[in-house]
Amino acid sequence: MEAFEILLQTSFWVAAIRIASPLIFATMGELICERAGVLNLGIEGIMVAGAFAGWVTVYGGGDLWTGVVVAALVGAAFGLLHATLTVPLGLSQHVVGIGITLFATSLTYFTYRLVLPQVSSPPKIEPFTPLPIPSLSEIPLVGQALFAQTPLTYLAYAVVAVTAWVLYRTPLGLAVRAAGENPSAVEAQGISVAAIRIGAVMVGSALMAIGGAFLTMSAFNSFFFEMVNGRGWIAIALVVFGSWRPGKALLGAVLFAAFDAFQIRLQQISGGIVPYQVFLMMPYILSIAALILVARRATYPKALMVPYQKGER
């Protein structure tokens, strides 16, 4: 009964949307890459790099939005590296992706230690604060949850809307989707598949990095090791769960985050009978369950992970 009451708490839904926000950025970023035909396993490391880049910009005296832009640029740079190796050079997207994650993570940790050689507790910044939208935030239950968040969460909503609009309503979006389904048709239109894919991976990686920056600049106020904690891999599962559609992926991210917020509260009322690790495992188990659930009807972009060579059929 207590468990049911959780669902009626405003604070629960506020937490759910807050937890969903970095996942929304990351999921949209991965979705854009995969829609263009490139699996980006660099996501986990790019989120780490973005989390640090945004934070360190503000720590060094920059303002918050400069931090977001720097994070996005760092993400795009790693995206460019990923795309250079996987698109024109056609290297294994699995190996390169894992390599980018290792590279981005280790370079971030190295830089962190350069900037802050000896600190016992990580220094804090002044993060984004909630910005309630007048009247909309006064709607019962959902108003606070949806419209009393930080500006970065609103940016996440905008990213979903823009991604959906570009993918389905513009010639560019058509070219991106075709690059992931039938690249030779794109080439036949005189559009370069390589350019589309490289661009998509850079934009997607920038979004992943902003997702990471959300953690240090909105959810928390400092950078610490292992703070991304598998969120990138969960985003990959959410893309599959959302059938590569922005709207469905958004729904998946919010459902997932609601479950995560729910287990945190359940953990508090369970009174320590169940080991806390069981609750912490749930998001990962849920991701695997979601993958199994949709596996039968999952329709992968047909050219996902297939390198494209001009003039080849």
Partner: peptide
Amino acid sequence: PSYIADVMVAVALLTMV
């Protein structure tokens, strides 16, 4: 910082493939 080893190994992977 000893993380230079992790960077070196990751770069070695990317350059070697």
